[in-house]
Each structure stands twice: as C-alpha cells, then as structure tokens.
C-alpha cells in the first residue's frame, strides 16, 4: 500500500547523457515495492508531483534506485538536490508487472530510452525465478545508452540506437524478429514504440508500462486515463497501471 514517506538521497550519479541515477533510502518503500511501481515525488516550487519508476530495490540496504532524464523544470530541480537531502514521496504507487513466468520459460524485455529503468528491477526478479531473459534496449544515440552490462549479466542483450552510433542501427522493432520463441514480453518506452511493439507482437502474451502527465497520482483526479475500448471503458494509469496486459488498453 502506498504511503507518504520521506526518502533520503544516498547516492547520485550521471549515468548517461542528461540521465541521473539516484539511490534513495526508505525502509517501508524498499520493503514493499514490486517491479513496475513508481514513486510520486514532491519537488520544491512545483504544484504537481513527478512520477518516476523504480529501477532497483535493495531490501537489505533499504534503498530504492531511480533513473530519470533531465528534460524539464521538475527533473532539473530533482537533479539539483544534494546527497543527504530528504524528498517527500508517495509510494510505492500503482500496480507492477506480474511475476508469473515459470522457471526455464523465456521472456523478452523491450525497453526504450527512459522506459528501460523499471524493466531492470523486473529482469532481476525474474532471474531469481530462473526465467531466461532476452533484452532488447533502444536508445537515441551512443551517449544515451545505460545499463547494458547490468542487463547482459541477466541474459542475452541487444542494444539498438536510432542513429546507429552504438549497437545495431534503427528501432527496437527492427530486431524483434531475430529473437526466437518467447513465452511473454514486457515493454516500457515512448508511446510510438509501444504502439509498434504491440502491433508486431499481436497474439503474444505481454505487458506494457505506460506514462502520462499525472495530477494526484492516487486515482482521484482522472488526469491519466487510457481507453480500454470504444465504448467509454477506461483505466487509470496511476492507480490501475502503470502496467497493463498489452491487449487491455488502446494506445491512441
């Protein structure tokens, strides 16, 4: 269950172009968070909290790691916080990825850019369950690549860059045909990528994690809804998601 907690910044390091990895300490959240959930962070001078996905959890050290790209005034503010600073956080928020794959099954991880982080925590958990993991990670360019070694430790990992400056050239969807039979796929990334993947993987069992501008982050304000059909059905990304079975939502 989500709580309002204070998290202390233990570590902060640039990990790729405009991308920061931050380690936050909090007993409750580190002991309850599951892969795919997010933190809703309050930042000084900002009316709305910022949702940032959890990329790793260390229950023993009582830490939660987040990765974020500095793109606007909120992430700029967060990046400016020094080690030792305390952040007001709602979390762990939302529903994560189901950890249903059985031992020896094979799953495919497809991440794009800043959508990659929540998939790392997922991959680690599934590895503990003896699941075979194949990862396809797409980035804009060489300077934006991160976590290649970490994913490689967990299984076969293919890196793709849009401009071909590192790994294979193109989009993640260009290399999905190279991946042999899988039991399930998990994906997080920009909307056009998710649209392409769910179309290409139609018929395959899969889960996608979505993002949207959020208001309350608890399910009360109806800012971050996604349609489920053409008849007015919907889900709330912050409360029902951010992870959904790929066929459950309409990516419009």
């Amino acid at each position: 269950m989500m709580r309002k907690e204070n998290m202390v910044i233990l570590k902060k390091s640039p990990i790729a172009q405009d991308t920061i990895e931050m380690v936050l300490e909090n007993k409750y959240i580190s002991n309850t968070a599951v892969p795919g959930q997010f933190l809703h962070l309050q930042l000084k001078g900002h009316m709305l909290r910022r949702p940032i996905s959890i990329s790793q959890v260390d229950e023993h050290a009582e830490t939660v790691t987040i990765l974020f790209k500095v793109v606007g005034s909120g992430t700029k503010e967060l990046a400016s916080y020094p080690i030792g600073n305390s952040i007001d956080v709602l979390g762990p928020s939302g529903n994560g990825f189901p950890l249903e794959p059985k031992a020896n099954s094979t799953i495919l991880i497809i991440g794009g850019g800043i959508g990659v982080p929540p998939l790392y925590y997922l991959a680690r958990k599934l590895k503990e369950q003896q699941v075979n993991i194949v990862s396809v990670l797409g980035f804009q360019t060489k300077e934006s690549v991160f976590y290649e070694e970490k994913f490689a430790e967990l299984g076969r990992t293919i890196i793709v860059t849009n401009d071909g400056s590192y790994g294979r050239k193109g989009f993640v969807t260009n290399v999905l045909d190279d991946v042999s039979s899988i039991d399930c796929y998990y994906s997080c990334g920009p909307l056009p990528m998710l649209q392409a993947i769910t179309a290409q993987m139609a018929g395959k069992h899969g889960y996608i994690s979505l993002e949207e501008r959020m208001g309350c982050g608890v399910g009360a304000c109806f800012a971050c809804v996604i349609p489920t059909d053409d008849c007015g059905g919907y889900k709330k990304i912050c409360k029902d998601g951010p992870v959904f079975p790929a066929q459950e939502v309409q990516l419009v």
Binding site: H46, M47, L48, G74, E212, R213, M214, G215, C221, F222, A223, C224, V225, I226, P227, G232, Y234, V252
Partner: peptide, 22 residues
C-alpha cells in the same frame, strides 16, 4: 469519458486541467 490526454499541465503556482467531466 471526458477529454483526450494530456489533461493536466503544471503552471507557476498552479495547474491547468481539462478532464472534461469524466
């Protein structure tokens, strides 16, 4: 169902919303 997303935007000391009476 209300309006398409994005439905909220942060502003200086406030926010804009256009939920659309969902």
């Amino acid at each position: 169902f209300g309006n398409p997303t994005p439905r909220v935007a942060e502003t200086a000391a406030g926010m804009l919303n256009a939920i659309g009476l969902q």
